[in-house]
């Protein structure tokens, strides 16, 4: 899961970045609206965390531009003001959720999970596929009710595949969900993670589409 964080305050941005990485997200962080729009246009993200009080271009303007572009990406807005009118304006202009500073990091993670869940059309918090259960909140995966130990990146690939069953996920798409742009990408990293997943969850779960990527078939 790859997130875009737009926050002008360095100290806070740094904190959110670390916190979300701890939760297993790949996070890119930009500090102003214009860069944010450029990045959002060129890169693939699963959700955006947007501070409203940005210098130069306000967060709401960024939101407007994103929605004008036709993007349906889930956006969680961060605000330092608790005036109801401001929250309503944010939601009306296309935000999916909001949080008031100072917020709880665990709650932020939970809300992001909920946003991702809704955007993938699920309403159950746990993804169930045949004999496999994946809980995005606790990062727990079970096979036949027996917990399976996965690394954060293996977990992220599995979640992406399970949320998009029946669709081929390209290797690039999977890579993007793993790494923010500062990370060094190893060329065969995705293949290695898929290999480990097959060992832990059974070879038949993930199918290779040669030269394109991987797919988990609909149950």
């Amino acid at each position: 899961m790859r997130l875009l964080l737009i926050e002008d305050d360095k100290l806070l941005g740094n904190g959110i970045l670390s916190g979300l990485r701890q939760s297993g997200y790949a996070v890119d962080w930009v500090q102003d609206g214009e860069t944010a729009i450029a990045v959002a246009r060129s890169e693939q993200y699963d959700a955006i965390i947007l501070d409203i009080g940005l210098p130069r271009m306000s967060g709401l303007e960024v939101l407007d531009r994103l929605r004008t572009d036709g993007s349906v990406i889930p956006v969680l807005v961060l605000t330092a003001r608790d005036a109801i009118s401001e929250r309503i304006e944010g939601l009306d202009r296309g935000a999916d959720d909001y949080m008031i500073k100072p917020f709880d990091l665990d709650e932020l993670s939970a809300r992001i999970r909920a946003l991702l869940r809704r955007s993938s059309g699920r309403s159950l918090p746990v993804i169930i596929h045949l004999n496999i259960e994946l809980d995005p909140a606790s990062h727990m995966v079970t096979r036949d009710q027996i917990p399976v130990d996965l690394s954060p990146r293996e977990f992220a690939i599995l979640q992406t595949l399970l949320e998009n069953t029946g669709r081929v996920m390209s290797r690039t798409r999977l890579e993007e969900s793993l790494y923010s742009w500062k990370d060094e990408i190893e060329s065969n990293a995705v293949d290695v993670h898929i290999h480990h997943l097959r060992k832990k969850l059974g070879a038949e779960l993930i199918r290779t589409i040669r030269g394109v990527g991987y797919i988990v078939d609909k149950a």
Partner: peptide, 25 residues
């Protein structure tokens, strides 16, 4: 007071976030 709350919220949010990151780390 509105402005003051706003000005205090960001550093406090940063403080809390980093504290939580440290707590989980």
């Amino acid at each position: 007071t509105g402005d003051a709350a706003h000005e205090l919220r960001t550093p406090i949010a940063a403080l809390k976030t980093h504290a939580q990151v440290a707590y989980r780390g």
